[in-house]
Structures are given as structure tokens and as C-alpha cells.
Design a protein around this nucleic acid. Structure first.
Lengths: 347, 347
DNA sequence: GTGAATTTTGCAACCGGTTGCAATAATTCT
DNA sequence: AGAATTATTGCAACCGGTTGCAAAATTCAC
């Protein structure tokens, strides 16, 4: 009664040995049948495959990882679970990894800021590599993985001239300049940066570039403010404050989701965009293109960034001593409806 | 030169044996030190822990799974990577699982519809259990896991009176009725259902309930339409069509994200909400509360659903023969600004 | 201090695979 | 056909842990 009746899926899984016995071959033969490029005659292979099918066998990836040293597990760690952009990011990462036969082990470090725990747990699971997908974590976070001997890529990380780990992303300083440029070209004279959290390197760099470009432009007034997080609420709250105090003609928001929050604040205040206030975001997330939002923004090529990240992590798994690399992708302004038209033609 | 200098992290990981040698005890002793409730004297434990710290040892979870039969890996499978609600869902799932020492292995089946591959791969990785988080997959999908002997919970799945697998979610039929009720109470006489994909059980049930309630209400005209997906674009496109043909006074949208698409279409057409057209969504995703959206909607208690799902999958891992259960959580209307005020008081 | 009861410990086998190596079988060449 | 070469196969050890069992060490009771 307890022992499953014939034909019924048994509780415990079928193993190599079962297949070997059924096919009348050694366990090695079975193993070889399922290993790419191993030496098996067509005859045995056929026999094994038949037996395997009849039994419904599929090899245990974890057991084999023990000897091969590869789990095909990739840690995907992020702390961005409130920015809708990251749904797209997770979509692309999971698909991209799956397409290469890799499995994402998702780590949410919304609370944590210390890499220690994540590193420990990801090592326990012998992940082949790790992708840190976050622009709000410091470079040291990703570096800690490297120090621990885990191949790592920091996606959306800070571009350093001599990086310690692989970084894939954009040149945030250049983006800041680009935003300044866009505002100048539209004749705005009083502008401001409405950034994400000040501690994020991405925010810092965007501010840097923005300020740098404006400094070299005579007759422009500008200010800088930071939202508490890359989130709608934080953007809205911060924009509310701006509206009460020193209101600018146009804002460069450090992220689309902050721009959306700002937009909401502006509308609540009974002002209109772009007539009263201009807004430009950064990212070009899906929602930015929605017709009732229609946000002018700087597009960050996330598909390319994610593809490159995966490629890089795979490469590093194969050659762990590979020299750290920074892959930076160009951004460009997407013209929509939250800035007034250009008054100057492009340079 | 090749062999790492003392003090430096060696390429290959530290194993049980290394620790045992250093501590001068047997491998069993080390294993026991790291196993909850095993018999070790305080003295050996101390010795082992010291050695382990010095070497930076942490046990290999995969190797131990081989004998314990538990990986603490939970497959989290979904096909909803375009509905912002699911970023919240993933956030809550990953956090909830992590808090219990479980690791989510994320599976994106945006393309796939056949459970075969996912089942195979999740079995290869010996996941302890699987959570299918989707309202657009048929019950048979989750059942296939069960048939394969994998503990499974279907979150956001269809409520069946005699379920074959654990289901956690809401009573979609009741929600449909609730929506109808809300529209009736506000005096709308020409109403419509603007659902998600017709193949999704959630859509079907919401339609069912909606129609059922309206059928029993004299003097109400209603129609039914379906968007191609649970996405903004699909909602917008479908609403455009509605506006060209038989326009209703108010729409029950099968999901918030569809409601947002519809809202966009309405606004593009130069109409206003709720003056010209009323909208009620379903889910109450974060964005629905954003002040410039302010969508009236039916709240689905996702925190509770996710908590229950995790609890249920954990329970099923412990007792695989546990009787399938349906946990249904109540929903309620969240009053915001996309329906005109009630004309009747609540019953 | 002695014997019994209880803890702690190590041995060895096992979890489900992989792989170097030597033995065997199948081909190829002369 | 026989020797030389090449392809296939099984054995046995190993990957990094766990665990039943019996031996050794402690603790307890008297």
C-alpha cells in the first residue's frame, strides 16, 4: 500500500543507478549519455535514452555540480523593488539567463546593506557568478564579492576609470551634461536637479555632470535637491517642497520614477507641464511612453546593458582572472511632451 | 607563485575536511557543529568554530542537500513581467522566502506555456517546492507540478471548490459582483467589463460575477470586451476601440494596469474621468494610489496572499500528502476619483 | 570507587553524480 | 588474416557533505 503501485510516479526520484540497471549498462555509461561530448556509442546511447524515458529520469543538476564545479546558478541581487523599471530589468535578466541555460537565484536586499550575508549565502549555494543590479549600492559592495572569489558584474554601477570589478552601465556624468544641454537648448534659465538618494553614486554623478555643464553656461541659475529614494513617493514629496520654496522653470529628475512623482506634485499644485514647469527624466522606462504621461527623458539602453552584463558574467566564470572591464553605453534624449520645444537648434 | 600566498583567499573553497584537520576532529564532528540539534560537546563545537572562522569556512548547501533531501530552494514561476503589480509581488515573495531561510529560483515563462520544461528544470535543481504566481495560467499548469511530485501552490489562481492543488487568491466572481454593485450604486446605467485576456481564468470569473450581478438588476445595459493581455498597451488599445463603437458610461477594468491604459485612451480622446466616463480597476497596485492617477479600484490583499502562499508551500514540503486547500481573501472597494460619487447608500 | 546510563565521537557507507585509467571491442591498414 | 589504431566501456575513486551504529568518554547514582 505504501509502496507506490506500478506506473505511478514514485515519491523518490529516479537516479542514475536505476537507469543503468534498466538499460543493463554501467552508471558511467548513463552519465556519459547525458554529458555533452562524452564518448558513448550510438547503440548504448539509444538504450540509455529509452530506459531514461521509460523511467522519467532527469539528471540531478546539483549532484553533478559537486564534481563539475558548475551549478549554472547566477545570483541576481538587487535592492530596487520599488522602481517599475526594475520589472523590465528582471524580465530581461531572467530571460537572458534562461536562454543561456542559467538560473537566476534572486536576492532582495531591500533591508540589508551589508554584503556579508548575501555573499555567504550565495557561496553556500555555489553560484557560478553574481550580478549586482543596482545603482544605489556602492562599488565596494560588488567588490566584496570579488574579494570573496565570486565572479561578479555590477550592472548600473558607477563607471570608474580603473574598475576593480566589471561594471556595465552608462556614463552618468555625461547624462547629467546631456540633461543640462537639453534644458539650455530650450531656453530655460532657472533650472534644477531633482536627484535620487544623495548616497547613490548614480545620483552623485548625474548631479556632477549637470552642474558642470551649467557652470560653463553664463546666465543660468540652478539648484540641486535630492529625494530620499528612487521612488514615486520620494519624488513627489521632494517636488512639493520645491514648489513651496525656490521654484525652477525646469527640472532634471534623476530618474523617471522621480519625474513621475514630481509630475504628480506639479499637477496637484494646479500647475501644468510643460507650460508652467518643464521636466526631464532618465531611464525611459516603459511607463514614460504611456500616452497620458509622455515624459521627456534620457534613454538608458537597458537591453544592451543587461545583455552585456550576462555576457560579462559568463565570461568571468570561464576566466576568473579576466581583467575588470567597464562597459558604458550611450544614452540619448527621447523627445516627448514634458519640456517645451527647443529654441536653439542642436549643436 | 601559483599557489595562493598565506592569508589570501584560495581559489578553491574550504571544505569540511580542511576544518576537521585544522580542528583535529573527525569530519562528522564538523558536520554536526553546523547541524541544528546534533550531538556535539561544547568543547569540540568551540574548537570547530574557531577553525572554521580562521579558514572562512561555510558549508556547501548543495552538497548537504544530497543527503538531507532539502535544498531550501523554492521555484518562483511567473509570466507576469509587464504588470507593475508584480514588482510588488516579487518584492514580497523574495523577502518572505528569505526571512524563512528559503531561496527563490526565479523562472520567467513569458514565452513558454507548456509546463514541461519548467518542471523538468526545477526538478533538476531539486527545488523543495514551487510557487506559481500567475492569474493567467490555467489550473492544469500548477497541477502538472503536483503530478510530477513537486509540492506546489498556485498564487492568484482560480478558486475551485475541490481544488487539486493549493490555491491562494481571491474570489474573482465575488469581485465581479462587487464591481457591478459599485457601478449600480453610483447610478450608472450603461456599463461594461473591460477584461484582461479572455483565456485567463481570473478574467473569466470576474466577467461571470459582473454579469451575474447585472443580470439581476433591471434596466441596466452592459457589454463585455477583452484586452489581449494584462498590460497598459492592451488596455489602451481595447479602450480606444470601445470609444469608437458602443461607449458605456462606466467600465469595470479587469486589472489596474488595464484601467490605466483605458484612462490614457479616454484622456487622449479628450474625454474626462469621471465626468464623461467612470473607471474602476482591480488590484490596488501602488501606482493606483499615486495622486495624479487616483484610481478607484478593488483591493486585492496581496500581502496576505503572498504570506499564505509561502506558508502553504512550506507546509506542503513538510507534509506532501497534505490535503489541497483553497485560501481565499476578501477584497474591498477603494474609493478614489475615477468613479462619480454614490447616489445610493451602501446596502 | 564501581557499574549503569548517557553523551560524544569516529568509522564507514551513502546521497547522485563525474572522470581518469586500464581493459575490451570495433575499425582500419597492410 | 593479423597487427595497429581508435573508440567504447566499466571500475573505482572522488565531489562535499550526512548519518546509523558501535566504541569511547562522561556523567550519574549508590
Amino acid at each position: 500500500m505504501r509502496h507506490s503501485p506500478p506506473g505511478m510516479q514514485d515519491r523518490m526520484a529516479i537516479t542514475l543507478k536505476d537507469v543503468a540497471e534498466r538499460a543493463g549498462v554501467s552508471r558511467s555509461a548513463v552519465s556519459r549519455t547525458f554529458t555533452e561530448g562524452a564518448s558513448v556509442s550510438v547503440k548504448t546511447r539509444a538504450r540509455v535514452e529509452r530506459a531514461a524515458n521509460e523511467l522519467g529520469y532527469s539528471p540531478n543538476a546539483l549532484a553533478s555540480s559537486l564534481t563539475t564545479g558548475r551549478t549554472k546558478l547566477i545570483g541576481l541581487v538587487s535592492n530596487n523593488f520599488h522602481n517599475p523599471l526594475f520589472l523590465e530589468v528582471f524580465d530581461l535578466f531572467t530571460r537572458g539567463l534562461q536562454d543561456r541555460g542559467l538560473r537566476p537565484l534572486l536576492v532582495n536586499l531591500s533591508n540589508e546593506t551589508d554584503p556579508g550575508n548575501s555573499i555567504q549565502m550565495l557561496r553556500q549555494y555555489s553560484v557560478d557568478g553574481v550580478i549586482v543590479a543596482s545603482s544605489t549600492l556602492p562599488p565596494s559592495f560588488a567588490e566584496a564579492f570579488k574579494t570573496a572569489g565570486v565572479p561578479v558584474v555590477h550592472s548600473f554601477g558607477r563607471y570608474a576609470t580603473s574598475p576593480h570589478v566589471h561594471v556595465v552601465g552608462i556614463d552618468n556624468i555625461a547624462c547629467g551634461r546631456m540633461a543640462a544641454e537639453a534644458l539650455i537648448a530650450r531656453g530655460y534659465r532657472r533650472v534644477a536637479f531633482l536627484g535620487g538618494p544623495e548616497s547613490a553614486t548614480s545620483t552623485q554623478d548625474r548631479a556632477l555632470g549637470f552642474i558642470d555643464r551649467l557652470d560653463s553656461e553664463p546666465g543660468i541659475d540652478f539648484s540641486v535637491a535630492y529625494a530620499a529614494a528612487y521612488s514615486f513617493d520620494a519624488g513627489r514629496v521632494q517636488m512639493m517642497k520645491q514648489l513651496m520654496t525656490d521654484r525652477a522653470e525646469a527640472y532634471f529628475c534623476g530618474d523617471d520614477v522621480i519625474a513621475l512623482g514630481a509630475l504628480s506634485a506639479v499637477q496637484s499644485a494646479g500647475l501644468s507641464v510643460p507650460d508652467d514647469i518643464g521636466l526631464i527624466g532618465l531611464n525611459d522606462m516603459e511607463m514614460a511612453g504611456w500616452e497620458n504621461i509622455d515624459l521627456t527623458t534620457i534613454r538608458q539602453p537597458i537591453r544592451e546593458i543587461i545583455e552585456a552584463s550576462i555576457e560579462l558574467v559568463v565570461g568571468t566564470v570561464e576566466r576568473p582572472d579576466r581583467h575588470p572591464e567597464a562597459r558604458i553605453f550611450p544614452c540619448r534624449v527621447i523627445e516627448r511632451a514634458t519640456l517645451r520645444p527647443r529654441t536653439r537648434s542642436p549643436d
